[in-house]
């Protein structure tokens, strides 16, 4: 596996996109450190990047990369190598390089300016979101042969989770506003990795004091060990389920 992975890495690094991505994150974070010295506010501003940009970059980069390495995969598959090895090497290659870019881009400034403790949640949720959306992009890539369609599906995933889902959630809250909804919404949030990441991040900041009773309920839950396990577990499922499904489909796919 490492042999294939090596060439996937080589291929990704050669396109320089990952370097641009790292530089972009670095510039954003450094700039925020220049404007503000309050770690909480920096984390809050970076939260928007994490919730919007990270998933978007993950889906777009992944699908484009996958289609660009179609030849490579074809070549590998005619060799005595298991299909899953080829596919999962691609996944590891993409996911690891995006995660590295993210860790360096966001983590390095915190390391330099201090406040690495503040950034722990930010870094871990960002890593999780990267992995989740790389998984979803792999799934969308195996669902169709057409590059444009695959990017379309991947963007739809992104659009759905960052926008449409929240609209539906608001509609549910509106329709059942006479009932106590805390537990129900907690379950609903688990169905959207972006929402889950956002809530976890908000609760880390003292700004969560503005979230009233609902916020207090969530804070109680996510502050507990059960809540921590719950959120980590749910996010892990979000990483594993799409890529597992994609691997299954890919194992039977005609090339």
């Amino acid at each position: 596996m490492t042999r294939v992975l090596k060439y996937v890495f080589y291929d990704i690094l050669r396109t320089r996109f990952i370097l641009f991505y790292t530089a972009f994150l670095l510039v954003c974070t450094f700039a925020l450190f220049q404007f503000d010295s309050d770690y909480g506010k920096i984390v809050l501003s970076l939260m928007n990047i994490v919730l919007m940009v990270v998933p978007l970059i993950a889906v777009v980069f992944t699908t484009i990369h996958l289609y660009n390495s179609y030849e490579f995969m074809e070549l590998m598959l005619a060799q005595p190598i298991h299909r899953n090895i080829v596919f999962l090497s691609e996944y590891m290659g993409v996911a690891l390089s995006l995660c590295m870019a993210y860790l360096i881009g966001i983590g390095l400034p915190f390391l330099l300016f201090g406040g690495i403790a503040y950034s722990a949640t930010l870094l871990s949720t960002g890593i999780f979101l990267t992995l989740v959306f790389v998984s979803l992009a792999f799934l969308s890539a195996v669902l169709t042969r057409d590059k444009a369609k695959a990017i379309g599906i991947a963007l739809l995933f992104w659009f759905y989770f960052s926008l449409i889902y929240d609209g539906l959630l608001l509609w549910v809250v509106y329709s059942f506003s006479d009932y106590p909804l805390e537990k129900v919404t907690l379950a609903l949030i688990a169905f959207n990795p972006i929402d889950l990441a956002r809530i976890i991040l908000l609760l880390q900041l003292d700004i969560s004091a503005l979230m009233g009773y609902t916020g207090a309920f969530y804070k109680d839950f996510f502050g507990s060990h059960v809540g921590l396990l719950f959120s980590a577990g749910i996010l892990t499922i979000w990483v594993i389920a799409p890529i597992a499904l994609a691997t299954r489909i890919f194992a039977r796919k005609d090339l």
Partner: peptide, 18 residues
Amino acid sequence: TVIERMPTAILLWRSFFV
């Protein structure tokens, strides 16, 4: 206004949708 009427809607706070 929305969160004044439905306090639970605070859970969408700082989302792109909002």
